[in-house]
Design a protein around this nucleic acid. Structure first.
Lengths: 114, 114
DNA sequence: CTGTCTATCCTTAGTTC
DNA sequence: AGAACTAAGGATAGACA
């Protein structure tokens, strides 16, 4: 950003793109480090660079695995909750229909008697 | 950082910690957005806040799933490579860790000076 | 390519409404 | 609570070694 305003577009030049990548990767990691320290939270960053055959992982491979595992668990939990909600919603509809059928039956019986 | 130098430690006060979380989460997402645009790469951030029962995911749930899947695949690949060529791989990692430690040491020294 | 420097732009803690 | 502001500290593009 210094010396010139940021242009948010792909850097065509290979070497300067690589330099920017390294600098900004460091910056991003530092920001993440500050955020997690200041707020006492867990986080991870995964990022693929064409410069390395392994992905960049912050803060560490192990920590990232932990965060991903927790993320997965929560996703699963959410889906279960969603299904539970749908079940109860469906059950509610069934109950309502049953109510209606009972009422209708009652009406039918009364009509037969008269 | 403005009005006072940053103290990189857990913010005890609940409401100001939450404000800082929101601001810095935005900042982090912006930085990640810039990095991925400028360098044409894929990335994701997963982060657990105590303010929400679901995790913050950047740039999106779907994109994160993709990145994680790719990460998993590469991890497997790495393990194969590790077995094939353990020495050079290990040496590379050792070099990287040494680099990181040097950088951190430098940061520590700078912080002590200020 | 890797590291250092610095002018300039960006981010954000504290404040106010 | 939440949005807007602003001074001050931080990040970084480009230049250089």
């Amino acid at each position: 950003m210094p010396r010139s305003k940021l242009n948010l577009v792909y850097i065509a030049n290979d070497s300067s793109r690589r330099v920017t990548f390294t600098k900004r990767m460091d910056g991003l990691a530092k920001k993440a480090d500050e955020l997690t320290n200041l707020c006492g939270i867990e986080a991870c960053i995964i990022l693929f660079s064409p410069y390395d055959h392994e992905p960049e992982v912050w803060p560490s491979q192990l920590e990232a695995q932990k965060v991903i595992a927790r993320f997965r668990k929560m996703s699963d939990l959410e889906q279960s909750e969603l299904m539970l909600n749908q079940e109860s919603f469906t059950q509610e509809r069934i109950n309502k229909i049953n109510e209606k059928m009972k009422k209708q039956e009652k009406v039918n019986q009364q009509q037969e008697m008269s």
